[in-house]
């Protein structure tokens, strides 16, 4: 796995890393493990959750590589590793509504610096943000998120980087693929060609890819 991360200038201390997945579904666990082995520091992770159990993101956090997490749901029945560091003030958290998180990433990939959404108006998650009224409704300005690295899990990929995903393992992966300087992809199966009509992520968004098999 290490070769996919070799000589990548975007993999550095302080980097922002997007991690696809929702719970355990559609997470690029093998890439996360390879990232952990680089022993980087002060990473900002953009992900829906903050990891659970003792694998994947939770282990990356435990290793001390992560300084901040931007996510919607940092709690689960087994999110002990993150919660202990959070309680000790050793990791920073930015809680973002799930749809706003997805749209901030989409906007980042689409070259849109900020947008307005009604989500979170009047709540603590809009504190300090610009509010504007359009058509008699209040909207909160949210800034886009771009990353140095995205770690994506896909079902199939071809040599042009075209990707497909399987059912709800798609989740954040296609949006994150668009929003990073370098997008690294683990695919379950490398194929000769992904039929153009079936491509979900066009290869323009993909930089490097590695086949990992059906390990989940």
């Amino acid at each position: 796995m290490a070769e996919i991360m070799a000589d990548c200038n975007d993999l550095k201390d302080g980097a922002t890393v997007m991690l696809g997945g929702f719970g355990d579904t559609g997470v690029a666990v093998k890439l996360v493990d390879a990232l952990r082995e680089l022993s980087l520091s002060d990473l900002t992770i953009v992900s829906n959750g903050a990891g659970g159990g003792e694998y994947g993101l939770a282990l990356l956090i435990k290793s001390g590589s992560v300084g901040k997490i931007i996510c919607s749901f940092p709690r689960s029945s087994d999110s002990k590793i993150f919660e202990e560091l959070y309680a000790a003030g050793k990791i920073e958290l930015e809680t973002v509504p799930q749809g706003t998180l997805a749209e901030r990433i989409r906007a980042g990939g689409a070259g849109i610096p900020a947008f307005y959404t009604a989500t979170a108006f009047g709540t603590p998650l809009a504190d300090g943000k610009e509010i504007r009224v359009f058509n008699d409704r209040h909207y909160v300005m949210e800034r886009s998120i771009c990353a140095d690295i995205a770690l994506v899990h896909a079902a199939t990929g071809d040599r042009w980087g075209n990707l497909t995903y399987r059912s709800t393992a798609r989740n954040f992966n296609p949006v994150m693929a668009t929003a990073a300087s370098t997008t690294l992809v683990e695919v379950r199966k490398l194929v000769d060609i992904v039929p153009p009509e079936e491509v979900i992520t066009p290869g323009i968004f993909v930089d490097r890819m590695i086949e990992v098999g059906d390990y989940i």
Partner: peptide, 25 residues
């Protein structure tokens, strides 16, 4: 019609998921 359903202030990290998007949208 205001709703509070995501957070009881305390030591645990605040988690919102999709609740704010759903009620607004």
């Amino acid at each position: 019609g205001d709703i509070a359903n995501w957070l009881i202030p305390g030591p645990r990290p605040p988690a919102v998921g999709g609740a704010m998007d759903l009620v607004a949208g």
